[in-house]
Each structure stands twice: as C-alpha cells, then as structure tokens.
Design a protein around this nucleic acid. Sequence first.
DNA 1: CGTTCAAGTTGGCAATGTCAACATAAGACG
DNA 2: CGTCTTATGTTGACATTGCCAACTTGAACG
Lengths: 224, 224
Amino acid sequence: MSTSEEKISGSPYHHGDLRAALVTAAAELVTCCGPAAVSLREVARIVGVSHNAPYRHFPTRQALLAAVAAYGFEMLFKEMKQSSLSPDPAEHLQLIGRVYIGFALRHRGVYQLMFSDEIQKSEYPELRAIAEAGFNSLQEHVVALNPNLHGSGATVTVWGLVHGIAHLILDNQLKQHDENDPNHTQLVDLATRILTAGLINTKSLAADAAMPSGCPMGADAELG
Amino acid sequence: MSTSEEKISGSPYHHGDLRAALVTAAAELVTCCGPAAVSLREVARIVGVSHNAPYRHFPTRQALLAAVAAYGFEMLFKEMKQSSLSPDPAEHLQLIGRVYIGFALRHRGVYQLMFSDEIQKSEYPELRAIAEAGFNSLQEHVVALNPNLHGSGATVTVWGLVHGIAHLILDNQLKQHDENDPNHTQLVDLATRILTAGLINTKSLAADAAMPSGCPMGADAELG
DNA sequence: CGTTCAAGTTGGCAATGTCAACATAAGACG
DNA sequence: CGTCTTATGTTGACATTGCCAACTTGAACG
C-alpha cells in the first residue's frame, strides 16, 4: 500500500517497514550516485525520518551498505540462474559471462558496492553465505565443462576473469571498446572463448588438484 | 637531507618540498590503513603542517589520492618490466601474473586505491598515460604469444584475469586458498596456465579483430 | 488502565572537506 | 639596499557526516 519510498504522513513514529524503505532508498542512491554518495542522513532524509532513525535498524553505515550489497548479490545470482538454458557447458559459461557483465553495467553502483572495500565482508555472514552459493553454482558449470577441474582454482579463475573485466569496464579503463562495443558483448564473448578454450585444454593440474574443492570464500581469515 | 617525513623545525612557512612529503605520507597511510583512512587533515598532521596547507598543492582530496595512485602505477609497471627475463612468451606471461599479484599483496592499500572508485581516472590524465603505457607493454607479450591476437580484446582479457583475481584476494573473498597457498602462487600459476592455453589455442577471432589495436584506455568517454 | 519497550525524535560532539581572509618569507626589481 | 610581488602556509569558519545519549511516543500486553 505504502510506496515504501516515503513516509506518506501518518504518525511520526512507527514508520511501518522502515528497514526495507531504508535499503530501497539506499539502493537507489547507490544506483544513481555511487556508493560514496550514500550517507545515513541522506537516506533518512529521503525516507522522511529523522537522521538517527536508521540506527534502530542498522548499527552502522557499513551495515546498511552490506544489506544493499546482499540485495545486489541476490539479484545477480538470480539473473545468472535464470540464464541457465543452454545444455552446452561452453555456451553456458559464455551466457553467464554476459549476464555477469550485463548486471555490472546495468547496476553499476550496486555492483561497485558489492565489491567495494567500504564493506568488510568478513563481518557480514549473510554476504558470505550468498556469495558462497553463487560460487558453488558457478563451480558446477566449470566441472561440467571439464571434470578434471574439480578444484576451486579453475572456478576462481573464471570468476576472476569476468569480475576483472567488469571492474575495468566500470572504471572507465577501457575506452575505445565503449565506442565500438557499447555493451561489451564482443569483448566478453572473446574473453569467455579464450577462457573456455583454456579450460577444455587443461588437464588436471597439480595446482588445482592441491586446492580443496568447495567454496573457498569468506570464513574469517586467521592468518598468523 | 630532510626526512621528507616531518617538518624538522625551521620556519613555519616554506616547508621545502611539501608536495612530495604529502604524497609520501599519504602513501604510507594508504599502505597501513587503507584508502578510506586517508584524510587531508591527517596527512597534514603527519607532515606537520596546518590542515589547509595541502590545498596549495592539491585542489582536492581526490587529487592527492590520484598522485598516490600514479606513484603506485609506476611502481607496478617498473616491477613488471624488471621481471622481463624469460624468452618463452607463455612463461613470461606467467611471471607477469605473479608480479602483478605479488604487488597487489605487498602494496595492498595502494593497489586498492589504484582501482578504487574514489578516483575518477578520467579527470587525471597522468593516470591515464601511465596505465596506457602499461597496457601497451602487456599487449606486446600477448602478441608474442599468439600473433593472431593483435587486437586489444585479448590483452584486456589477460589484464582482467589478473586484476580480477587480485581483487578477489584483497577482498578476502578466497579463504581456503589463503591457508594452503598464502602467496596465491599456485592459484596464479593455474590461472595463467589456463589462460595461456586458451590464448594459444585461439585463432584470430572476429570479436578481437574488430577491436582497434592499441590501448583502449582512458580517453574521456563521450557517450551520447 | 497502567506498564513495558521497540521504534523515532531531538540534541550534541568530534572529524572532515573546502572556502575565505590573512601572514610570511624569498626572490625580483627599482 | 629597500620595496613589492607572490608562492606558500596559517587561522578561522561552515556545512556535512557518523555516531552517542537522552528523551518521547504509541502499540501490545497484563
């Protein structure tokens, strides 16, 4: 009923679902102006509550951003799953790459936030869990392409590639491509072809075999 | 003579080489505490000048960070050049990958800054120029591996891969790897092997041929 | 009806980026 | 040698921010 966008009027207390409204407003702010533009006070202003209301739902600014990032991860992985149409593993990986880059381009700010150093992911287990699920899903497709690559190293390689390209694109680091290939589909197709060719032609490698299988993400690092 | 670290004493005006001192102090701060910890006032405090002195040398905080990033790019490319030892192109690319990741690990904060969204690279042409040189250097090695890949797409792929992996590592996104492979050399070796296998086995592709050769980076985007 | 307590409110603090106005010292010019 | 200019620092101020503390409200429950 309520727009969840602004407090219509009602009583000044008990907003209704302030938490969701904050996340939504923050997500829009991130989308339009980037992660740096998100301040708790501005978000509160947009939603129409006092500058300290958000603290009832998020202990810190970073926690709000983490919620937005989690929302972004969910969107991304949902899109990736919905693209699971092709029976050919190589083609499938290419599709996933396109979806990944497409998401990064369409949700530029949110994507930047998801991998921004403004969020210490180790402190937000929900983030870790979501990313873990995505990683495992990706690993299935890698193994489908080449059963020898059952270690996590190959999957990290795939993820690293699309992630790195997405980052370079969003950083405006690639200029001439923008002109000839605005959606970067040609670039992504080339990259995924190169990679799948490499994956197929790679026998079980010591380096990969030495890695534990399963998702390597997230657990608290306890480096000495 | 002066430590370039702090103002020894002398007259309260005319520091000597404040600009360099600011960059140095900022770089150390970035190295130890991350890009977010760098405030102009803190840097000024470290150097021993008033909170507004930096504005005589940098019009904005971002400009100071850009200078630190430029310093970082120079270091990185210098390391990459110094590692140009192997005559075998594939081995060479592997070396470059190791150097790249090694740099990211050793200069974590600076590396994060170099690709942080806190710096709008399009506004700092010096950054563009330095990155351009590095890209071109990398492209030479890619072409040496497979002359068919003379377009920029393959080079972007290589860069994207190492960059993406570096990013994932620095984000603490890879956990179990940290234990078995603290320097991530095994991971990098596997990734570069997969990639070089793909590069070698990739004939001239329409997608790559369609790309203009030369560096695609940096020029101001004038998207409609 | 009275209590409790989550959910919002006002007020305040220290820190930051940046603007404006002022001060100084080092070198140019008479 | 004396003055003037100006690059370089300085002090002061303002709006904004994250976050803490103390107060208020109103809905749910006995």
